[in-house]
Design a protein around this nucleic acid. Sequence first.
DNA 1: CTGAAAGCGCTTACAG
DNA 2: CTGAAAGCGCTTACAG
Lengths: 362, 362
Amino acid sequence: MTNPNEPGPTVPTGSSQGIEAQSVNRAPRARPTIKDVAALAGVSLGTASRVLTNHPATSAAAREKVRAAALSLGYQVNLRARSLRTSRTNAIGLIVPDIRNPFFAGLAQSIQSEGLDDGVTVFIASSQEDPDQQDQHLRTLLKEQVDGLIVVPLGGMTPMLEQLRDQQIPFVTVDRTLDELKAPSVDADPLPGVYAAVEALRNLGHRRIVYVGSLLDSSTGRERLLAFDNAGDALLPGGDARMVIAAPLDDDGWLRELDSFLDDGATAAIFGHSRHALRAFGHLRDAGRVIGDRGVSLVSFDDLDVFSLLTPAITAITQHPEQLASKAVAMLSATIGGDRPGSVRIETSLIPRESLAAPPAG
Amino acid sequence: MTNPNEPGPTVPTGSSQGIEAQSVNRAPRARPTIKDVAALAGVSLGTASRVLTNHPATSAAAREKVRAAALSLGYQVNLRARSLRTSRTNAIGLIVPDIRNPFFAGLAQSIQSEGLDDGVTVFIASSQEDPDQQDQHLRTLLKEQVDGLIVVPLGGMTPMLEQLRDQQIPFVTVDRTLDELKAPSVDADPLPGVYAAVEALRNLGHRRIVYVGSLLDSSTGRERLLAFDNAGDALLPGGDARMVIAAPLDDDGWLRELDSFLDDGATAAIFGHSRHALRAFGHLRDAGRVIGDRGVSLVSFDDLDVFSLLTPAITAITQHPEQLASKAVAMLSATIGGDRPGSVRIETSLIPRESLAAPPAG
DNA sequence: CTGAAAGCGCTTACAG
DNA sequence: CTGAAAGCGCTTACAG
């Protein structure tokens, strides 16, 4: 393990003139330890450690010698040894339902960058929407002694989530919440964004709006629908102004419902899931419907990259993933520090694009 | 740190009747160590360790007692201690240029799942296409003592990449390669996919095809273009059958070039980057051009989820990310095991969809 | 099969 | 300011 790449050929080659020269950079040195640094610097192990950790009680002379030695050896601290000693890893775990979902990819990127700035390592795990995988990752992360966890919980409770809650492990939830685990959470309030969308639609002249909801058993799914109802109550009162479709993720049947609502006079649709918005985008265009100006208006939760690449560009309600990320990191580190931060909500907001426009005349 | 959440209020509260009752699940127990397990089981530390690591030299009685103790204590091994002792972490690092790129998200997901199956933890890091961040992550991963690294290298060499090469750190590159670092690589051969695309287009009646290339300084960018040239030479000889556009990622100017090629009789476009394909998709539809049957055919590298959601669905040349992933993991573990595996290429292939169809009649 | 002991690479009181 | 020493939680020869 220390010297994995055996340089020596087992069979002697015919050529007598230095085949050796080939194995140029063969194992220059095993990874140096602080002992090596101390030896080279001519100080004790403790002194070497102190200068390397910037402990104030060090002489200028020691600092100089140790740093030079560390540099010339290419010394890198062994974090596993350090954290065994300090019982602090400066690492946190992040579990998302699926890293392939662009929203979570963005969230993960933001959280990891945030961590990089704060000097904390973020271990990203993706559970593929599978509670068992979620728990496996959770277990591994705990064995790795992470200081805390940021989790986007899947639908329900699981053994490891219970353990997190019952043991005193610092963790916060982000995006989705789960009432059973009384953890500080940071999520997005869908209302401002939905309200702005409905209001903009109404002002443009839309009178009948469809909401396409999904994952209605998750906190986000429920609250988005609720926000639509509330915004509708306030802005478009009247029995037939609002329609709702509950759309599964793996079956396109809901498209027919959407078609028939549009045939019945609906002129706009708001989507709780970006996947559905994209699906509808393709479907409606294919069916020959105009999207955008003088056609059907489309608004979707989450601001995917593709939304602005398409024509017409799709209007989004953003949850401000960077804000969710930085709040989550801040709250987790507060929790690790011993605080009990309260939960936090970030306001969603509307990013109007071409798909938000006037309905057909008349 | 052991007991972060101070339960006690500093200021005595007025109410004399048991506020205490509130702090129900206060620190049931600090994380148990193997010492606790051994004590509870009534055996020595060594014996406890042996049964927990499934060492054969254990009595049935010991096994029973130790397992029961571990279970009742909720014992989880401290991986940082273990790997300090064994100098093996069973963890590898993966660095991708940007986790928000769906191709890399998929690759990362596959590699992490692969790892989960093999009992190896995969630490995912995303460098946001920034060599400095790449190196920071690399450094952290090394300090964490990962057994090896899978890296999708950014454009050029960096100090940490050099260190990886010069020191004896097991690592492989995936997707992109970098000649300077003589590491085993696994990447995709673009030719089969491109050839199949050009052939299908020709058989459908297309005679003039545009290639929209990007990242032409990376190994993938270069080779895709080369593949187009080779396929064209073989299948569509003739001076004006092939056109090439070099498209940057952050500027839409290339769309005008595309338009003019289409105006001049080109009827199909192949895209080296999925982003450009999406951009063109929106642009062309907006310009009133038909995509697919009797219109412009579109083929893109990498098979994004959205491609099949759109209408018409976009034809893809897939690099088979799951295969890249499993090969990369296998090759890295071979390298860690002391082998020097050779580099490997995965064949790309064509996934025909509606956007691949006959050109306009006449 | 089992226990006592050494040691992985660090940090940090403790004396001096 | 510095060195010697203890100890973090484990695994693993070494005797028995």
